[in-house]
Design a protein around this nucleic acid. Structure first.
Lengths: 192, 192
DNA sequence: CACCGCATGACAGTGCCTGTCCTCGCGTAG
DNA sequence: CTACGCGAGGACAGGCACTGTCATGCGGTG
């Protein structure tokens, strides 16, 4: 055992989520988090850029997962099929950590600053998906639009999954969204 | 003339934009803005919830404009046609204030906090569009997806418009995006 | 054994944002 | 004309997020 307990970063993440759930994000000073983790405030800000970021530690891995799925998609897949594969991979990651994801999302949904941070993470994911599509030879404009559409589908499907208590699996909700999306320009489709 | 100069709010908006352009957002303390506007710091926070919000004063009107356009769209329009009409109306508002919009966007693009705020304004717009579509009888899922798709198109087209110095008008860029979006699920389209 | 690197601590300071009370011109009732 | 109260803004104190800077001491290395 070293001079300090190991995994300071992980302890901070856990303490933060616990406290954000117990008292709410705004009512939790950083000093409380570090106290529970047995560290100082200064150390918190060495590990996380700000008080929000501690809730988004996994966003980098999610991005890698999605980018990998786009790269691995069949060469004959359309851009939408490629990004659908990415969301499928993401769905797997979410469903594995069901209860944690739910808890985390309840904290985010309850606070505007956290919702802002979530949106910029999704925008970053969109950019990464667009890059991955361009690497497949998709042209710039189509790549960006497919990536934005995918993020839209993810927002809607994920929101529904959370709302209904995750009784239904996420993947079919994603598929349904992609299906409906294709009908939105069709006159007389059952959507309009 | 009253005890105070009129239009305190407008003076704050103008002083803030000027200073954000001159020095950058982060290098501009609120006290500098209020000094230039001839007011106190406390008054700034009576008019705007925070230092970011002063740049987004017009977002409410933009939302109303877009919602109005959706409501006014032909009853036979598809959901995508309805939201396209909304973006068309928005494009008009942007093009009228070309230089101001460009300046404002350069400030936003240079700062992560401001980009976050912009994203949550767009998310709010997406919600308003979805509500307006539901009022037309579009079902919940289709309404949300059409609204998200529209925001995606707006982001991409607006970004291109800014990048190229607004030499091309915005409206054709929007149309092009909607066109490309429809091809993304089609195998062998020139996008993939 | 001496040295160095690195994670953390200690502490001071800035700036955003809030709560609270005060000021004073203006419109209005009597 | 006076009295009153409302509303926009000022004054001031304080909390908390975040940063810069220097100190500390364990673990590995030569």
């Amino acid at each position: 055992m070293g001079r300090w307990e190991p995994n300071a970063r992980g302890r901070l993440e856990q303490a933060a989520l616990e406290l954000y759930v117990e008292r709410g994000y705004e009512q939790t000073p950083v000093a409380e988090i570090t106290k529970r983790a047995g560290l100082t405030e200064r150390t918190f800000f060495r590990h996380f850029a700000d008080k929000r970021e501690v809730l988004f530690a996994g966003s980098g891995r999610l991005e890698e997962l999605c980018v990998g799925a786009v790269a691995a998609a069949s060469p004959t897949a359309t851009p939408m099929e490629a990004v659908a594969a990415a969301l499928d991979a993401a769905a797997g990651a979410f469903e594995e950590r069901g209860e944690l994801v739910r808890l985390r999302q309840s904290v985010i949904d309850a606070n505007a600053e956290l919702r802002e941070r979530e949106l910029i993470k999704l925008a970053s994911l969109s950019g990464a998906l667009a890059d991955a599509l361009r690497d497949r030879g998709v042209d710039e404009l189509a790549a960006r639009l497919a990536a934005e559409a995918a993020i839209g589908v993810l927002k809607v499907a994920f929101g529904r999954w959370i709302d209904q208590g995750q009784e239904l699996p996420l993947r079919p909700l994603l598929s349904e969204c992609f299906d409906v999306l294709r009908t939105l320009s069709v006159r007389g489709a059952d959507a309009g």
